[in-house]
Write a protein that binds this DNA or RNA. Sequence first.
DNA 1: AGATTAGTGACAGCCACTGACAGTTGACGA
DNA 2: TCGTCAACTGTCAGTGGCTGTCACTAATCT
Lengths: 215, 215
Amino acid sequence: MAEQLAAARATGLRERKKRRTRDSLLRVALELFTTQGYERTTVDEIAEAVEVSQRTFFRYFASKEDVAFTVVSMVEARFLDAVRARPAHENPLTALRNAVTWAWESVGEAIEAVVPIELHMRTYQMIESTPALLAVHLRRSTELEDAIAAVIAEREGLDVDEDLRPRIAVAAFGGVMRLTGRMWGQREDASLEAIREMTARCLDHLEPALGGDWT
Amino acid sequence: MAEQLAAARATGLRERKKRRTRDSLLRVALELFTTQGYERTTVDEIAEAVEVSQRTFFRYFASKEDVAFTVVSMVEARFLDAVRARPAHENPLTALRNAVTWAWESVGEAIEAVVPIELHMRTYQMIESTPALLAVHLRRSTELEDAIAAVIAEREGLDVDEDLRPRIAVAAFGGVMRLTGRMWGQREDASLEAIREMTARCLDHLEPALGGDWT
DNA sequence: AGATTAGTGACAGCCACTGACAGTTGACGA
DNA sequence: TCGTCAACTGTCAGTGGCTGTCACTAATCT
């Protein structure tokens, strides 16, 4: 985050070079992952395409998985900020809902600064359809949920470890969000428009689904 | 499932031998995982302790992770059966809740038939606290949720792909269940009693947490 | 008993990842 | 402008999970 802003204005030749190789590694990796599949892409292959050694790849990214989630975590951070920014008078679920809506409307340019949006969309779908990555994605999601629960608890002036409601509300909300992502991943229409619409639709069904009778 | 019943009555020498090595591999693996940690245990080590080749380990278990989830998936299957067995008049959330309660009350002996319960408890806590395993656990959980959603949909005479409510209800429920498991994993008290009580407590908070104001 | 077949071990190899060491090249003060 | 320092990188060797192959042993079948 901060380092990207710092690197945006040309600091030094060294910095710029570093940023270039990192960007190249990222873009080439995602491109290879999405075209030929995650498992069928080796780290050697990525490194070779960028003309660096495999060792260098691992100096920029902690693991092969790590590359796949670079952009995703930017988006997540943005969503978390959005939750923090919601006015205090909104009740928890409303705040969460408005935060998602706002986040989906504004991530566009943030993503584009690093990789083409369309590449990110394909990446997301690849994550959803690659077991090993899906697993990591889910774990990361619960970590995010933890952070969100903390924010919600603070908004309401509660202790997260005392009152279960923040965590539970976020867990339920998170469950629905993951369902949304999954359904979107299975679709052909991979536009921001589509995911926004699907999000709204799923959230509309949350409360009725938990009600007693479904008549 | 079926193969275990079949193997219970001594079929042939071959079968019995197979079952013995499989059981040994399972038990030794879990024991090593829980005492010295998952990452710090190598497959070679497990194989050596059971006096088979590493290759043989992989003939019984698809992966190192696979061993860790053997018992867990038995429990999950049992829960799924419990959901199927709930009387039709119960509404979705009630049926799910009763199914969990019943499952936690009856898994005991089923587990004990394979490994000591206490070993399974430690295994579960290890899964929760090992990032790589937690990730896989979460993915497996969503697969289970899929199956449950299908059952719920059928109970209510709905099409899972048509009406979103089954999936959403299960997603929310699943979110809460995972929260339960996690909280339990962080506790010292690793008894079946404790997890049952925690389950009830979390589920009691589900509906109030989704309500408008938390006053 | 002999033919068949399942189960196994030994070995070779792929790939993700790590540590150690040495070479290169920007940064920066003299 | 020129070294010197520190950062960045490549090479190499090694570990651990996992797979394919092949020959060998032993349980099962006829």
